[in-house]
Write a protein that binds this DNA or RNA. Structure first.
Lengths: 204, 204
DNA sequence: CCCTAAACTGAACCATTGGTCCAGTTAATA
DNA sequence: TATTAACTGGACCAATGGTTCAGTTTAGGG
């Protein structure tokens, strides 16, 4: 048992290729069809692999969607974590929140059906292992960020709750459809009104 | 074709009985189980009727849930439409909004899984005829009410959009679960902070 | 009081879908 | 090149929303 050490066998080349194919296929399908029409089977077919492969690599439909989302979210996360102001540290809480929501709205708009797809996946999923939205690392990180900034600017309110409310917005169908139509600036403006009201006591 | 006039044949007695049985059964099941475990078949069984009957009367799973919701919402609707202030006409917009959201939070809390059930039904549904949330008369009426009040108090903001955002809150899982746990006052407080910030330029 | 049309009922049936299984294939390593 | 663990994919499964339709029941007219 000497040389049987952890060698972090990296992902096999064919597996990596298929992972990409699946991800890209899902992406493409989501761009053209509403989430409920993008079944795992269709994704597999479009990627040229079997359904079993998709489940092997992503665990579940939800896992696939989440992975897709992660790809997109990583950049934003880094920007508000360690990038320059107003997104990153340095600006005042209200300013950072405004910047964050503007970025979020744009992200959501660029990714069309993805938000709804995740929502759909979660509800649809025969979720055995509990995988609520709250345990999604991306959501978690966004929530921590928003709720922290709110608390900083207004220590007297229930920041956690309000953060959930503001973030929840993105999952609403009426909002999502406007987003799909490219109206992310409208959403950003609405966010701004709410945030300004909350943190700056009135209009900006 | 003389006496063949509309006679509004009223619902047959047995049908009416079964409708009630189905509604009550669904209600009961939703009180005890998460929405995704309350299948149409289970509801039918619990009501002592066949599945076909349920579909005959309610059209779809969504239709059933919506009907259930309507029952509960009627009272609230009347209260804010023609009842006494602060819910009804007479109070200032901010006051009415606060009262409305407090009532809504309580309604949602009292009805446990119902909100999520509707959400679930909509996503789950093999929706042939388009029945988005926006076409749901209850949602429509709430949205009109909220958006009207916001516009009244703050003519400079995008009231429609903000109304969607505030109402959307109720469908968020993290919020819904707190609601189920009876924390509707916490939600109401958060609403209050947002509404006050928006309409009253700061804390209340 | 009975007769008939229309409404109602419910069980079998259907299609779709997320997910599981596992025998066969293949890429990496020694 | 031999070994082996990972990978692959198609058959298979269970659950579910929804449809169908032959048989039953009700309401009301004659």
């Amino acid at each position: 048992m000497g040389k049987n050490v952890r060698m972090e066998r990296r992902e096999r080349a064919d597996a990596a290729r298929n992972r990409q194919a699946i991800l890209r296929a899902a992406e493409e399908l989501l761009r053209r069809h509403p989430p409920e029409q993008v079944s795992v089977e269709r994704v597999a077919a479009a990627a040229g692999v079997g359904k079993g492969t998709v489940f092997h690599r992503f665990g579940s439909r939800t896992g696939l969607m989440l992975e897709l989302m992660s790809e997109r979210a990583r950049e934003l996360e880094q920007a508000f974590t360690e990038g320059p102001p107003p997104l990153g540290p340095g600006a005042d809480p209200a300013g950072r929140l405004l910047a964050f929501f503007a970025a979020l709205a744009e992200l959501a708009a660029r990714n069309g059906n993805l938000m709804s797809a995740i929502e759909h996946a979660m509800v649809t999923s025969k979720s055995h292992g509990e995988q609520s939205r709250e345990s999604n690392p991306i959501y978690l990180s966004w929530h921590r960020h928003v709720s922290g900034l709110i608390a900083e600017g207004r220590p007297d309110v229930d920041a956690e709750q309000i953060a959930h409310m503001l973030l929840g917005t993105l999952h609403m169908e009426p909002i999502a459809s406007r987003l799909r139509a490219g109206e992310h600036e409208r959403l950003a403006a609405a966010f701004a009104d709410l945030v300004n009201g909350l943190l700056r006591g009135g209009d900006g």
